[in-house]
Amino acid sequence: MFVSLADPRAGIALTRETSRESLVILAERTRPISSSQTRLLPVAAPLADLFPDRSLRRGSTIVVTGTGTVGREGTTGGGTVSGEISLALALLAQASQAGSWCAAIGLPDVGAVASHGLGVDLVRFALVPRPGPVWAEAAAAMIDGTDLVVLCPPFPPRPAMARRLIARAKERRAVLIVVPGRAGWPECPDMRLTIDAIHWDGIGSGEGYLRRRRMTVTATGRRSAARPVQQQLWLPSPTGSIEGTASTGGIVDAEIAAAESTATISTAPGRPR
């Protein structure tokens, strides 16, 4: 950058050239981190359409529920079975790979291989499997230090407690993902993801094996997310990751279902809304 005065003519040219270069470098280095970058956390591409910013907004609370989670209590055993945990893990994936820390509280049975397959970086993934009665305190502490927290309350939370956790997430600019399960969540979240129309592919009567699961996720929220958005997903896909189906929105036709049951990759267009 600094030029000796030995050759003045070359010096001027060189100064101009190098200073322009160094200015470019300097501009790149001192480029402000835009507010949107610090305000948002990335989310996997197939899920992006569900969010008004196409990313997770820091400080927001997301509730993930399956249809009939509450009413299903008597009909099936063995906890939740409707894809809520897979979806919650899928929400973590992109931010986790970008360097964010994630935590899961109250999920004693999380499958490591499935988490890894969905893209969660296990190095920055901490689990508190059995938080017990102080689950809310544990969640609050995790919100203080990690960017994304998946919370499955072991007991029905009191509204004040839920409100305090939501406020904490807002203050610390973390994303709180609640999988209420049977405990429920008494507060209105910023966004609610509801899973519907689950169908497993690739398995028949004694033949094949579980290949992939199709689900419809409906996002409803407040303010800019007030209009419900639907997205059809393969979660998990045959490789264990998350993929969008070609057809999005609307209700799946019988033909599409039939086409999919023959295990071809679905490229059938969705019925226009």
């Binding site: 890894h116 689990l127 508190v128």
Partner: peptide, 16 residues
């Protein structure tokens, strides 16, 4: 902080 609250074994990592 969570380990302080729940005990050192309460926070786990998972390895493949």
């Amino acid at each position: 902080a969570v380990q302080h609250l729940l005990g050192p074994d309460s926070v786990v990592a998972v390895r493949l």
